[in-house]
């Protein structure tokens, strides 16, 4: 079988619009190069740089201009969309946990790390009796927070996962907002949160009373 081979020319014929910098000439041999080094080292510019450093050092030491974060005592704020160890939120009004035990997070979890058990409690409500996340398996994909209809499970900013025991973070009560700091609970703005135009998207239904 005969095959025709076609060569295509990819080089563009258009002229490129480069701007050339005027850097002078680079010394080509020993003596001019030595002169350039001496000139640059002993010019005033060196002391301008040193002065800036001394000035900043003074500011940092005496005027409180320190920029170092004292990790782990201090942590930088991170984006609400950052996906770290999960938080379980509470209802601000009643303090009851928001989770309704629907099991969607367990189902959607692609690394199969969420396990929950629910039961019928005395008040004929659904109660979450067991809830664990295996952080050894979790890949922090955020699907659980996205699927949660109540925004009960969300990603927090706690990115340090060093602990003596793997179970340290993974129980429901550990992830739940402590009841005494309920007022500091932040509304989640990351994956799965209510979109800014949510109000506009609501359809009206009739109310006779």
């Amino acid at each position: 079988m005969h095959e025709e081979i076609i060569h295509t020319n990819n080089t563009s014929k258009e002229k490129q619009n480069y701007t050339m910098l005027e850097l002078g000439s680079t010394p080509a041999y020993g003596w001019p190069a030595f002169k350039q080094v001496v000139k640059r080292s002993l010019s005033r510019e060196l002391f301008v740089g040193l002065w800036l450093t001394i000035k900043e050092m003074g500011k940092t030491l005496f005027l409180g201009g320190k920029h170092t974060t004292q990790y782990p005592f201090e942590k930088l704020p991170i984006s609400p969309r950052y996906r770290a160890i999960h938080n379980m939120l509470r209802l601000l009004e009643s303090g009851h946990y928001r989770c309704i035990g629907c099991g969607l997070c367990e189902k959607i979890c692609i690394s199969n790390c969420i396990a929950m058990e629910t039961r019928y409690d005395e008040n004929q409500r659904k109660e979450v009796s067991e809830y664990t996340i295996n952080f050894g398996r979790c890949i922090y994909c955020g699907y659980c927070a996205e699927v949660c209809p109540e925004l009960a499970i969300v990603h927090g900013g706690r990115y340090e996962t060093a602990s003596e025991q793997r179970a340290s973070f993974s129980l429901f009560d550990d992830m739940l907002t402590p009841i005494d700091v309920l007022k500091q609970q932040q509304e989640f703005a990351g994956f799965g949160s209510v979109s800014p135009n949510a109000d506009a998207a609501i359809k009206k239904t009739p109310l006779a009373y």
Binding site: G101, C102, E106, K107, E117, T118, R119, Y120
Partner: peptide, 12 residues
Amino acid sequence: STDFKYTSNSWE
């Protein structure tokens, strides 16, 4: 079923 109620979703 009272015994089954709230223990599992049907699709699981």
